[in-house]
Computed example of a mutant assay.
Amino acid sequence: MPRYLDRDRIAIVAAVVVPLVVSAILVPFRESFSNTNVALVLVVTVVAVAANGHRLAGALAAVSAAVWFDFFFTRPYQRFTITKSADVQTAVLLLVVGLAVSQLAARARRLHLVAITDAGYLARLHDTAELAQSTKSPDTVVDHVAAQLTDLLGLRGCRFEYGSLIGHPPRLEQDGTVIWDRRRWDVERLGLPDREVELRTFGNGHFYGRFMLDPTPGTIPSLQARLVAVTLADQVGAALDTAGNG
Rank of each mutant, 00 (worst) to 15 (best):
G98T: 00
D87V: 06
P76L: 03
A65F: 05
I82A: 04
L113H: 11
F73G: 03
R110G: 12
K84T: 13
S85T: 13
V96Y: 01
A115S: 13
R110E: 15
A50T: 06
Y121L: 07
R75W: 00
A48K: 09
V49A: 02
F71L: 15
A61T: 02
A86S: 11
L113A: 15
R109G: 14
T81L: 07
T74M: 04
W68Y: 04
I82W: 03
L113I: 15
A61Q: 01
A100F: 15
A91Q: 05
N52T: 14
I82L: 08
T81R: 05
L93E: 11
A66F: 09
A59F: 00
R109H: 12
T117H: 04
D70I: 11
A91I: 05
V67K: 11
Q78D: 13
R109S: 13
H54R: 12
T90E: 01
Q89M: 09
A123C: 10
L125Y: 14
A59Y: 02
D70H: 14
A65N: 07
R110M: 11
F72S: 03
A59T: 00
F72H: 00
L113V: 14
A65P: 09
S85H: 12
V63S: 04
R110L: 10
H54Q: 12
Q89L: 08
A129P: 10
H126G: 15
L95K: 07
L60D: 02
A57I: 11
H112G: 15
A106R: 00
A119P: 02
V92R: 07
A91L: 07
G98R: 00
G58W: 03
Q103S: 06
V101L: 05
T74N: 03
L125I: 15
D87C: 08
G98W: 00
F69Q: 01
V88Q: 13
H112R: 12
T117W: 01
R124Y: 03
L104F: 12
A59L: 00
L60V: 02
L122C: 06
A115H: 14
T90V: 04
G120S: 14
L104V: 14
P76R: 03
G120Q: 13
L95N: 06
A48M: 11
W68D: 01
L94C: 10
Q89D: 10
V114K: 05
Y77K: 06
I82S: 05
L56R: 05
V96S: 03
A48E: 09
A129M: 14
P76M: 00
A59E: 01
L60I: 03
R107V: 10
L99G: 00
R79N: 14
V92D: 11
A91P: 06
G120C: 14
D118R: 08
H112K: 12
V92L: 15
I116F: 10
A123V: 07
F73Q: 04
L113G: 13
Q89H: 10
L95P: 04
T90Q: 01
A48P: 08
G120H: 09
P76F: 02
D87H: 07
R109Y: 12
Q89F: 09
S102T: 06
L122M: 08
